[in-house]
């Protein structure tokens, strides 16, 4: 058993003393029937690091991300968050964790979805305050006040009383981010957070994510925004057919990678974005 002493503290800048990585993925595999969607994945995310997962669709990026908070069940290997094994008991039996233990794990791991997934019957403020009341046990007034500050942080204090149906995609995604950061997670997972947005709305969401990264949030981001990956990520992992085909700093992956699949992918990307 690895001792974890940092679970109660908010994310902070990485230092040499951090023995336990935020996320440690070792030999993870997953199959849907005979289809192997993840094969022998190894990946380490240190505190305050931003790691982008890129690659063609169907390469397993989203599946890998969803395995980290066990929305998707992985079959082989192990994923640890702050040293704690995700989804299974940390012994020889390796039984599935109870829902209660899963909840304890998930409350420190925030997730932002491609489709925002706000609750449409609640206002922006209520969306952010909900988990504070239901999970953190805050009283309603305190939760609303805290939620208001979080909406302010993503620049949406003025939209607190609006229902999601009246917000633009970019605004909805920023509310979704506020909903996550209100819980003060140690780690945030982003599943293609800008893929469902109109091009002119992508920037505002990426800006909020840049701010979070600058504040030292540990982030794992599945994205097709190569610019974001190149400028903000500390590490980039290129997935192809369920494997990590290239891994390193953005410079190493974008400019120095020799794998044909990576070059082909980047080539296609550049061609699509040039006109």
């Amino acid at each position: 058993m690895t001792a974890v002493s940092q679970t109660a503290t908010p994310p902070r800048p990485a230092s040499a003393g951090d023995a336990v990585p935020m996320v440690s993925i070792r030999g993870v595999g997953k199959s849907f029937g005979t289809n192997e969607v993840l094969r022998d994945i190894d990946l380490t995310v240190d505190r305050s690091e931003v790691v982008c997962l890129i690659g063609p669709s169907g390469s397993g990026k989203s599946t890998l991300l969803r395995c980290i908070n066990f929305l998707e069940v992985y079959d082989r290997g192990e994923i640890r968050i702050e040293g704690k094994l995700v989804g299974y008991t940390d012994d020889a039996q390796r039984r599935r964790l109870s829902n209660r233990d899963l909840r304890d794990l998930r409350r420190n791991v925030g997730m932002v979805f491609q489709q925002f997934n706000l609750w449409p019957h609640m206002t922006a403020l209520e969306n952010v305050a909900e988990a504070l009341v239901q999970v953190r046990g805050m009283d309603k007034a305190a939760a609303s006040a805290h939620a208001g500050r979080m909406l302010d942080r993503v620049g949406l204090a003025a939209k607190a009383d609006s229902y999601p149906a009246r917000l633009s995609g970019g605004q909805q995604q920023r509310v979704a981010i506020a909903r996550v950061i209100a819980m003060e997670p140690h780690l945030m997972l982003f599943d293609e957070p800008t893929s469902a947005l109109d091009p002119e709305l992508v920037g505002e969401v990426l800006q909020v994510m840049r701010d979070l990264a600058a504040d030292g949030m540990t982030m794992v981001v599945v994205t097709h925004e190569m610019g974001f990956a190149a400028n903000v990520a500390d590490k980039v992992a290129f997935l192809d057919r369920g494997r990590i085909a290239a891994f390193g700093t953005p410079r190493e992956v974008f400019h120095e990678a020799t794998e044909p699949r990576v070059q082909q992918f980047l080539q296609t990307y550049h061609e699509r974005n040039s006109f």
Binding site: R103, R106, V109, G110, M111, P120, A131
Partner: peptide, 15 residues
């Protein structure tokens, strides 16, 4: 997705 969002925030099934 609405249920997954709630799950990922650590909400219980009852909630």
């Amino acid at each position: 997705g609405q249920v997954e969002a709630a799950l990922s925030l650590g909400m219980s099934y009852g909630a």
